[in-house]
């Protein structure tokens, strides 16, 4: 597992029905591309987060396939129109099989 992986999420605390909110997520991760070599000339194996999803009460908000060219500490900012109170689940899938999850509860305004 990559070191110091820490998801960070900014989601609204409360919402009215039908309101649109901006969400921000960032996860600290080296996103090693697999293209680099170490000082001895050996290839450093690829180790990236290859998928990121966001769900709201089980419904998909966004589902992203990530490629090696995406830089370190990937950041996503996107919008969601919320039907009302509920819970966001953010999930990052690492090449090494690790899954990082963060949740954010949204209350009714």
């Amino acid at each position: 597992m990559a070191d110091n992986v820490k998801p960070r999420v900014r989601a609204p605390r409360s919402t009215a029905a039908g309101e649109t909110h901006t969400l921000k997520t960032l996860i600290s991760h080296p996103m090693e591309s697999g293209q680099r070599k170490d000082s001895d000339g050996n290839t450093i194996p690829r180790s990236i987060i290859h998928r990121f999803t966001c769900e709201f009460d089980g419904e998909t908000v966004i589902d992203v396939t990530m490629e090696p060219a995406i830089s370190t500490n990937p950041y996503f900012e996107f919008e969601a129109k919320l039907p009302g109170a509920g819970e966001f689940v953010f999930t990052w899938y690492d090449d090494d099989g690790s899954v990082y999850t963060e949740t954010a509860t949204v209350e009714a305004a």
């Binding site: 110091n4 820490k6 960070r8 900014r10 921000k24 960032l26 600290s28 500490n73």
Partner: peptide, 11 residues
Amino acid sequence: FDNPAFVFVDQ
């Protein structure tokens, strides 16, 4: 949140 330095501050 937007400032990438805060990844390191968290550490």
